[in-house]
Design a protein around this nucleic acid. Structure first.
Lengths: 373, 373
DNA sequence: TTGTTAAGCGCAAGAGTGATT
DNA sequence: TAATCACTCTTGCGCTTAACA
């Protein structure tokens, strides 16, 4: 177990096994011919000393660190955490380690700093999940031309290697869904301007509306968080502008939106249809279940890692892969109705519930006191 | 910009500046006396070659990699992602890199494997956020005695360095809250048995109930996910056992629980009070706002990192720090009431809403067609 | 076929060398 | 003469990769 003392090195193993360092190296790395008997002797020594190769030294000598870097926005948000999970999995099963470097805020400078930190560690490649304009992304790729970079949050047109979600397409799906339901007065809650993904989404929303001779009747900005979604929805309602459809930049903000609408007695989808983006684990279980655009982060993560792998193996694709999201229709969207309609429906629902809760189907709270029935 | 070619080394800088390698080293690391003029010349060369120190080589020479490892459960879950964010932040501002290694599943073997991968990279210390029994944690600490380990998900009694959340205390707060509201029939939805944190919580819940002469009337197991919370709640309801209070292992499962109850027309907190655990960003905005136990992950992350730092600086505390969660009372809990009471209340709310929606305060859906008014 | 010797990856730390006060 | 100061030389961290016996 080698308690306390320094870790065993190749030389230690060699000494114990009575062979040279390089023989041990061959055995450990399984390359080069080694006599079966020698191999056994070496393996025994390895086990005895609990030898663990020093990847730092290995990296220095091999000029390959067997690690990749992941520069990402705040990992406590939904998308980055899902991505990190997927990427770490892919990297681990390829024998690579993942070094995470969080990019604090937007902009070229922040990204450069994060990638530089990774480059110092001699990562073999970098995955960058931070919003960057085409020009900025190309600048980053230029500055770090000696380490393969795959971008994950840049415009599809950027001349860099990229593994992206087709945000534009997803937005089109969402907007089209509302339009096809018959909504004509549609508002949106989008993410911060700096976010490239968000730009594509706005574009998609607006293009669809324009196609149908419509425009966004109102818009508010959030910061991806549920609380910001709540605030934005409140602001939208306070503006006095009327709308029956609401496009929301992500599902977390939609949680806040649903709450704001509920608080004001507005029915979803009766009064207002709400559609989110992401399809988080919660989305199907919200009240009402959220119609949204599903992004498959595990697939994206594996695809991005694969892209990087191809770069490392010297194919130089310089391409962009787009992963298409899909629409998931649930109960938070429906054709628009008049206010009268809505209250009628509410009254009906109420009646229904009262009927259902009658003798035939007593609620739990009653069972607790059988004597009272 | 050094396009294409190999990265510049200390020697390259030294050659360009016309000094020795070691002088450059001194300048870069800001230690040892260097003439002002020489320093300037060196800095210029550094800038010109875009020199970035090689941390691998540095680590080899210094016997310190300036990186720490984080072995954690699936990072796509709430707690691990929040923790990762906090720890990365603390590490970055201390000039250390974070290497993440995900522990696939529970058990000593998985953790050992993950930590071994980190040790290979010569991390200066390891933070371990994976469930481990006292014995297993001690075994891990023994196996990796040459690298400081701080555990984050072990029983408080374990003889290892640990930075923990006081899960027991949090559970006590939750259970006590329900009991003090007057609930006597309480059920729970807990996390997988393997989870150490969960054991403490169950203990806390049960101890409080026992104190008051009560027992859990029913229990179901979930896997932290909203969907599992939904399933567990459905199973609980189907069991026919009656209860008015429901303790849930985390807020994500509580989302599914709220949905299941809503679907069946059960009022929260009227029919059933629900209390979660974590206080996620969504919790305050659920319908109804969730009463829960707040865990401060950023504080825990910083504290764990601080603990590791102390270990690295050779103080050997061998202690456990407990971070206390706090109760956040919102609208999902209330004193238990009879079924009659509940429906009366619902009717009142309905009336209230109709009054509110009258001429003085028209809902948005109406404003959209002013002609109709 | 097995094995060994030697050089070097990029850097840091200690001993050593001339200068300047 | 002695004491700095500014810098250089040398060695080695643990490993790999030729070239060689």
């Amino acid at each position: 177990m080698n308690i306390g003392g320094k870790a065993a090195t190749l030389a230690d193993v060699a000494a114990l096994a009575g062979v040279s360092q390089q023989t041990v190296s061959r055995v450990v790395n399984n390359q080069g011919p080694v006599a079966a008997r020698t191999r056994v002797r070496v393996m025994e020594a390895v086990g005895q000393l609990n030898y663990v190769p020093n990847r730092l030294a290995q990296g220095l000598a091999r000029q390959r660190s067997q690690s990749i870097g992941f520069a990402t926005n705040d990992i406590s948000l939904h998308a980055p955490s899902q991505l990190t999970s997927a990427i770490e999995g892919a990297a681990r099963s390829a024998g690579l380690s993942l070094i995470v470097s969080i990019v604090p805020g937007y902009g070229l400078g922040n990204v450069t700093q994060a990638v530089r930190a990774l480059k110092e560690r001699q990562v073999d490649g970098v995955l960058i999940n931070a919003s960057l304009s085409s020009a900025d992304a190309e600048e980053v790729a230029r500055r770090f031309s000696d380490v393969p970079c795959v971008f994950m949050d840049v415009p599809p047109g950027a001349a860099v290697n990229a593994a992206l979600l087709d945000q534009y397409h997803g937005a089109v799906l969402a907007a089209r869904h509302l339009v096809e339901l018959g909504h004509t007065r549609i508002a949106c809650i989008h993410a911060p301007e700096g976010a490239v993904a968000e730009h594509s989404r706005m574009q998609g929303w607006q293009d669809v509306l324009r196609e149908h001779g419509l425009v966004l009747v109102a818009q508010e900005e959030g910061d991806w968080s549920p609380a910001s979604g709540y605030r934005a929805a409140v602001a939208l309602l306070a503006s006095g502008l009327s709308f029956t459809g609401l496009l929301v930049g992500n599902d977390q903000m939609a949680v806040g939106v649903l709450r704001a609408l509920w608080e004001r007695g507005l029915n979803v989808p009766g009064d207002i249809s709400v559609i989110g983006y992401d399809d988080t684990a919660e989305s199907a279980l919200l009240i009402p279940p959220l119609t949204t655009v599903r992004q498959d982060f595990p697939v994206l993560g594996r695809r991005a890692f694969g892209h990087l792998g191809a770069l490392l193996d010297d194919h130089d694709p310089q391409t962009t892969t787009l992963t298409r999201p899909e629409l998931v229709v649930r109960a938070s969207t429906a054709p628009p109705r008049s206010g009268e309609h809505v209250r009628l429906q509410e009254a009906l629902q109420l009646l229904q519930r009262h009927v259902r809760e009658g003798p035939g189907h007593p609620p739990l709270a009653q069972q607790e006191r059988p004597g009272e029935r």
